[in-house]
Design a binder for these strands. Sequence first.
DNA 1: GAATAAATCCCCCATTAAGGGGGAGCCCCG
DNA 2: CGGGGCTCCCCCTTAATGGGGGATTTATTC
Lengths: 209, 209
Amino acid sequence: MEEANVRIVIVEDDKVIREGYRFLIGEKQGYQVINTYSTAEQAIKKLSEDNPDLVMLDVGLPGMSGIEAIPKIKSLLPHTLILICTVHDSEDIIFRALTNGASGYLTKNSSAVKIMESIREIMQGGASMSANVAQLVIRSFQRNSHSPLSRRETQILEEIAKGKNRRVIADELFIDNETVKSHIKNIYAKLNVHSKADAIRTAKENKLI
Amino acid sequence: MEEANVRIVIVEDDKVIREGYRFLIGEKQGYQVINTYSTAEQAIKKLSEDNPDLVMLDVGLPGMSGIEAIPKIKSLLPHTLILICTVHDSEDIIFRALTNGASGYLTKNSSAVKIMESIREIMQGGASMSANVAQLVIRSFQRNSHSPLSRRETQILEEIAKGKNRRVIADELFIDNETVKSHIKNIYAKLNVHSKADAIRTAKENKLI
DNA sequence: GAATAAATCCCCCATTAAGGGGGAGCCCCG
DNA sequence: CGGGGCTCCCCCTTAATGGGGGATTTATTC
């Protein structure tokens, strides 16, 4: 035997897409579609019986959204993996899906080959994202390269964002308390703010830290 | 004509791997290996002439590491894309590569097919990660599901981590200053800390926020 | 060579925030 | 009925913050 059967459940309100997925997966060796549902509510009622290894989930479902469904599925079946397959590629939805516990995110232009490949990757203990999703995720890690803040100022603002106070920052950087204070004054002037919270917010909005 | 030629430069110290990549890419229609280098220093000297669309970069180079080389390459050629191809898959290295400006990260067990696919994905305006890298990245977004903190406490600690003070948090949550203070006392007790900075650090280390 | 930015340090000042102590009422769930 | 969660109240001292005004030195740039 090559590998155990992968038990898959599909949650998708569009019948054509749902049956398309069922057909696509059903014909593949080692993969089995246990059940399909058109709403998250229906799926959640039956999932414990179905006991799937992987749930393919749309986000644009009527009633409970796929995003809301993720933590509920995860609490019912903690070891079940979730692959989001959807047309929605807004940054907000993608990040909420991933923080809520999804192991993969494909946008719907993904080919049949890509979908099967993602399922394989996820089942082999990894995760998977389509190229446009990966781009958003990677971009979220990157800094603005045209920061108005100097290197030292950026460094100090990062420490402030960790909740450290001036004295601690000064000690760690081997500089005087007053020097840290001066840097903070300059940071506030450059960002046009007057408090820690505003500086942190502004800096994060502009990817300065 | 299908598409313009993609100009690729390879930076890799292992000759066998370097020539393997060169052969793999060179035989593909639409892709051209302009040059290969065994160190980042050599590559950086010549990159402006080579003017590549994409640089395949190892991280474990002698001398300047691939990680350090990324921002230097990006400042020389801002529109050149960088694909990391390496055996190193430690969390720290991966995140440093992505924050420094890499558009993709493949670990070296990636097949020839996967490598070409990644190059195509990146060139088509996206990004790419191998499954194990994607897993680390996604995991970094997710919370610990066994938090000792209550929902309210987590929420308040998140606001503290944004640099907000008790009064502002109280106003935003429509509760009293003293209530916020009580929550903070309970947070500190649960995390066994005695300051904002320690609470934030402990919470982040344990993915509570 | 002068101007500029960055990084360092030094005073003044008043106000606010933080942390620790103790206590208490209400609600819900098991 | 007990405990966790959420809410609010009082006491207290110390630490931190934000704004004002400087100064010096070292690089780098024009």
